[in-house]
């Protein structure tokens, strides 16, 4: 008996085949059609593992493309799925900080892994992966290089949170001869400040998980840790947590 969870995001579509444990995960680019991408993930999961589709009892969809997943038994928001996925990996987690490409959020869980409350940044790129990307482009580097660049350098203060203003601030910092390294560190610190503000909206108890594409940045993690004076935990493959949560929700739906 299996379940499948599929998380169709704006950039990548993720899938998990599940039978109480993770059997298989796949990640493909979403491309222009979220509908095709989710179908493709579904087929890949079945074929690669020689699983008969009758053995899959539930398919649960999440992510912004969930509305187009006509073959799913149920669709659930990424917030609930994130909570379930993170809790499955580590049931001591009570707070999740998720910084993705388009938005950032904080989810607080109870001891059963149910969502207690959650907060999202409001329709603005500040403090998201998008912000990092724009800034990295300015330094003529890749997002993944920012970390390397910033390593061991004291951050240059970047005061604007707004992507547009921060951009011009950085241009003038560069013109005034500030080093790329210190600016890279400053950019990461600015994201950290946003994340800490978001975290402060909920009372932090138990372990904190840091997820989403931006969670790969070690320096960002360290900045946040030093500000909230607590260790945070970055699960491996943070990208599939939503899909995993969807699969877990499907698993809980079936009579075993």
């Amino acid at each position: 008996m299996y379940t499948i969870g599929i998380d169709t995001g704006s950039v990548a579509t993720k899938g998990v085949l599940f039978n109480g444990n993770i059997i298989k995960k796949v990640i493909i680019p979403t491309g222009w059609s979220p509908k095709n991408a989710s179908k493709q993930v579904y087929t890949l999961l079945l074929e690669d593992n020689n699983v008969d589709k009758n053995k899959v009892k539930k398919v649960v969809g999440t992510g912004y493309g969930r509305v187009s997943m006509v073959f799913a038994d149920k669709t659930v928001t990424e917030i609930t799925c994130h909570a379930k996925g993170a809790y499955f990996i580590n049931n001591n987690i009570r707070t999740i900080l998720d910084i993705g490409g388009q938005d950032s959020k904080v989810i607080s869980l109870d001891e059963y892994g149910n969502v207690r409350e959650f907060f999202m940044n409001d329709k603005c790129a500040a403090g998201t992966g998008r912000f990092l990307q724009v800034m990295a482009n300015l330094l003529e580097g890749d997002v993944n290089d920012l970390d390397k660049l910033a390593e061991g350098t004291a951050p240059k203060q970047i005061s604007s949170m707004c992507t547009v203003f921060a951009e011009s601030e950085i241009v003038s910092l560069l013109a005034n001869g500030a080093s790329k390294e210190s600016i890279a560190a400053g950019i990461i610190q600015s994201i950290a400040n946003r994340a800490v503000t978001l975290l402060s909206k909920t009372s932090i108890k138990g372990d904190i998980a840091f997820t989403g594409g931006v969670a790969k940045s070690n320096i960002l993690k360290k900045y946040i840790e030093s500000k909230i004076k607590k260790n945070i935990y970055t699960p491996n493959d943070t990208q599939i947590i939503g899909a995993l949560g969807a699969a877990v929700i499907g698993w809980n739906m079936i009579d075993k």
Binding site: Y64, T77, I79, T80, N114, V115, E117, F118, K123
Partner: peptide, 20 residues
């Protein structure tokens, strides 16, 4: 403009209420 985001937040809130 913000309808999509608000909808997701509302849906998540309702999922939470049902779970409770």
């Amino acid at each position: 403009q913000d309808s999509g985001q608000i909808k997701t937040r509302l849906e998540a809130f309702f999922e939470m209420l049902k779970e409770r």
